[in-house]
Design a protein around this nucleic acid. Structure first.
Lengths: 278, 278
DNA sequence: CAACTACATTGCACATTACGCAACGTTGGT
DNA sequence: ACCAACGTTGCGTAATGTGCAATGTAGTTG
């Protein structure tokens, strides 16, 4: 595998962590300064790194632009950001926002729970998430037009990660129907036995489900039942994000849960952690 | 300059735009498939690209993580996002958020004005902004401890971009004093003659100014005076962001302008576009 | 179901490319 | 004004990345 590219990547990494002088760069790679210089010059020409006034190299805007491009509709992310943080604060759990991008569902935002930074969840912004073994994945799948769903699942090889995994198309389809009926999805340790999630759909202005929000907890922190007690908050947040995107909720001549969300905007007021303005 | 690295960068770029098959990748580079494969494998090992189920390559989470790392306190960005969008909506002008990072001030967020996408402003997220020839730069400089300010300016070579540029340390210092007194800064075409800005400081929980928000317009859209009519909104937004960061405003036994901000949180209520929950 | 097409992947020999070296510039410090 | 530390340039060399041709793997069509 290409050596110079590896070196370039290494330098990009380092420069993202802290400013890098040329000699430092050469040292960490274990190469001559001239070599490091040429690599950095190449990266600089693409604005992947940038020279500071002091002559050190730091990560450049080129990379940042790319990442924004890849996260696609930054609109969704920006509209959602405040709501996601609010949901995290109120529930105490880790919050995710995932979106259908091309053929896959990727996390486009994540708000960590301060509680269990000890146990790192495997999720990361930009990473793809299982279509059929995650709450957000199942949520989005459930509301997709069926041809689209078939297309996405056609390449998937089902794998039984845990006992609860829906590891074949038939049981998954049954689950998706259930999700559509109740309006939200759970992940009962279906990918990692100790990870629980509850997810709710986010709709764009046309009413299409394009993303899903979820709250996540590990077994030792909360049971799935305990997580589900936050369902009104979760649904409220998902609906608020949908509204930011221009979606208008249907008339509440519907089930019980819908009533909740409409009352929720009050949560804005204050979280009561003693810090004003939050 | 390193050829293979150039090629790698090219592939990263393309893969960010749309999924790339191996043969496509080879074609755009004009190289053999095996060459393209090795490059992509190297990039994949660093999670700079990622293979989709369909076998195509798309931008990977590695890059996105880096960019988040480099933008540093994503906290600030996330806390600010909704406020910045609100400010853009209310003023109609392009909004920036810039932060002191290391020895430089970089844009960490930008909300474009829909009005004049025709004329592209030179600013980009992740890009450094002039310390002394920009409203955000001067704002942050003005409130920095003087040793810190000296350190930042020690490497700077002053350049007279336009007639209004503060192109030497003395006149800059006078300007900074004025900014401290009035609590906000302007950019009267000091870098590009046709670009006007007004900026206000953002403080963290200790009261330190760590960032600045600005509204920008080009000459043909609005004069500096017209821009300044938005000062209350701008100051309000900056203060709201500061509050999100845990800053508590000082008692309003102060000048005129301060009084405005304290009344402003009402703008939260609604932007008048008929969408509830904002 | 076999034959075909299109695509991804591996091994190998070659020469292009990126490398280290050493000399030269440049900056800042004592 | 000297020295030291760092960045930059030119050049010969060989290690590295490259193209080619052969092999493997789906997916498609008669």
């Amino acid at each position: 595998m290409s050596q110079s590219i590896r070196r370039a990547i290494d330098l990009i990494r380092r420069s993202a962590e802290h400013p890098l002088s040329l000699t430092e760069a050469a040292d960490v790679l274990g190469v001559h300064k001239s070599t490091a210089l040429r690599i950095l010059q190449t990266l600089e020409s693409a604005r992947f790194v940038r020279r500071t006034g002091a002559g050190t190299y730091v990560l450049g805007s080129g990379l940042i632009e790319l990442s924004e491009l890849a996260l696609g509709s930054m609109d969704l992310r920006q509209f959602a950001a405040a709501h996601l943080r609010g949901l995290q604060r109120e529930t105490g759990h880790t919050v995710h926002l995932a979106q259908l991008t091309g053929d896959e569902i990727i996390y486009i935002d994540k708000v960590d729970s301060p509680a269990f930074d000890a146990v790192k969840l495997p999720s990361r912004v930009g990473r793809a998430v299982s279509l059929y073994a995650s709450a957000v994945g199942k949520t989005i799948l459930a509301y997709l037009p069926s041809e689209e769903r078939d297309r996405l699942l056609s390449h998937v090889v089902f794998e039984r990660f845990t006992e609860t995994t829906f590891a074949d198309r038939d049981s998954l389809d049954a689950e998706l129907t259930r999700i559509r009926e109740q309006g939200w999805a759970t992940d009962n340790g279906e990918h990692d036995a100790y990870v629980m999630c509850v997810a709710a759909p986010v709709r764009d202005s046309r009413g299409q489900v394009i993303a899903a929000t979820s709250i996540t907890a590990i077994e030792v922190i909360a049971s799935l039942d305990q997580l589900m007690s936050n369902l009104p908050l979760l649904m409220g947040t998902a609906n608020q994000i949908s509204q930011e995107l221009g979606y208008t909720l249907p008339e509440p001549a519907e089930p019980l849960l819908v009533a909740h969300h409409l009352r929720l905007p009050e949560r804005r007021a204050d979280a009561g952690d003693g810090q004003p303005g939050r």
